[in-house]
């Protein structure tokens, strides 16, 4: 079958044509330093510079599971729930890197079973996922990925001067069908992706975290932590949430889902000031426990795809990969 190629110089044309039909969320440069994902204005172009710096927030936390999400609206006087406004726009999430694609696939699974999260899927169903092949960030440690095609609707694979367009779904095929692309029968050259073995062995990581609960390692690692929760905000697989009511002066309100962080002090607090995870060590351990024990137990996969954000943005300089290596080493020494 013919390969579809898009010269790198034509990417902005592709985005322009997408903008005619969809709202496009893409990476843009902020103050020449960091890349952030946001809704592109009609005059804007995405920043797909090769000197790609890891976006602060993963794109799914802009386009699919934003910080605040309305669950429903209501009236406070003579209380009733307001009916929903239907017909939201279709969105293209453009420029999603591979580890975020993997994280999104897992988040979909979490939000689908055992109980389907309806507000999540109301948004998710309207989003078209377009991945882009970027050079890896120095703090990233991408696991080997099988069946990449299941992770996106479309993917721009870097093959030198061009992007090869990979189609992952009918939705993706439909989006690309109206865009003029070069066809070639040749197989473009493409080296294997840079992968790191640390996340490959789910069972080993699970044991390393589960069996080390009382280890001094956790005291040492947690000692650096300041409990700010930044690692959880920037993580593509952290989805803890709180639920809050907002009301305005006219007595109309909305119930909103808002990001929460299990690293924050009050996360496991109940009335009467009882806190089930009072110490930072307990909360620090719990963060790893969720990602490397509870999630594998529940879904069979890890809560980490090695994007490296938590390490890149931790103000205390905590490096998750180094911590995992230490935990695995301790496990291997014990057994």
């Amino acid at each position: 079958m013919d390969k579809l190629l898009l010269p790198k110089t034509e990417v902005s044309k592709l985005v322009k044509s997408l903008q005619e039909r969809f709202s496009v969320i893409a990476p843009v440069e902020r103050k020449g330093q960091k890349v952030v994902f946001r809704r592109l204005e009609s005059y804007e172009e995405p920043c797909l510079d090769l000197d790609y710096t890891l976006s602060i927030l993963p794109p799914q936390k802009i386009g699919i599971l934003p910080c605040w999400q309305e669950l429903f609206g209501f009236k406070v006087e003579s209380p009733n729930l307001l009916s929903e406004t239907e017909g939201r726009e279709q969105v293209v999430l453009f420029g999603v890197q591979i580890t975020d694609l993997l994280a999104l696939k897992r988040l979909d699974k979490i939000m689908e079973s055992p109980v389907k999260d309806v507000p999540y899927w109301k948004v998710r169903e309207r989003v078209i996922i377009m991945g882009v092949d970027y050079p890896a960030h120095p703090k990233a440690f991408q696991p080997p990925i099988e069946a990449k095609e299941g992770l996106f609707d479309l993917f721009l694979d870097d093959v030198g001067e061009d992007y090869q367009i990979l189609i992952g779904s009918d939705k993706g095929r439909d989006v690309i069908s109206r865009i003029p692309l070069r066809r070639t029968a040749e197989s473009p050259e493409k080296g294997p992706p840079l992968v790191d073995p640390i996340l490959a062995d789910v069972e080993k990581l699970k044991s390393a975290v589960e069996l080390s609960k009382d280890s001094k390692l956790w005291d040492e690692m947690a000692e650096l932590c300041i409990g700010c929760g930044i690692c959880t905000w920037v993580c593509p697989l952290c989805y803890c949430f709180d639920v809050c009511d907002k009301i305005n002066i006219r007595g109309e309100g909305s119930r909103e889902r808002v990001w929460d962080s299990c690293l924050l002090r009050d996360f496991a607090r109940i009335g009467n000031d009882i806190n089930f995870r009072e110490s930072l060590r307990e909360r620090f351990y719990n963060w790893y426990y969720h990602k490397f024990v509870r999630m594998p137990e529940e879904y069979g996969f890890l809560g980490c795809t090695g994007c490296g954000r938590c390490s890149a943005y931790c103000p205390a300089g905590i490096n998750i990969k180094k911590n995992l290596v230490r935990l695995v080493k301790e496990l291997e020494e014990k057994t």
């Binding site: 939000m111 109980v115 989805y239 949430f241 709180d242 109940i270 009882i274």
Partner: peptide
């Protein structure tokens, strides 16, 4: 047991207790 069960459907992580 008493915990802060926020969502009630095993999503929000507030009431987790080990597994």
């Amino acid at each position: 047991l008493e915990r802060h069960m926020k969502c009630g459907v095993g999503k929000c992580q507030h009431c987790t207790l080990g597994k």
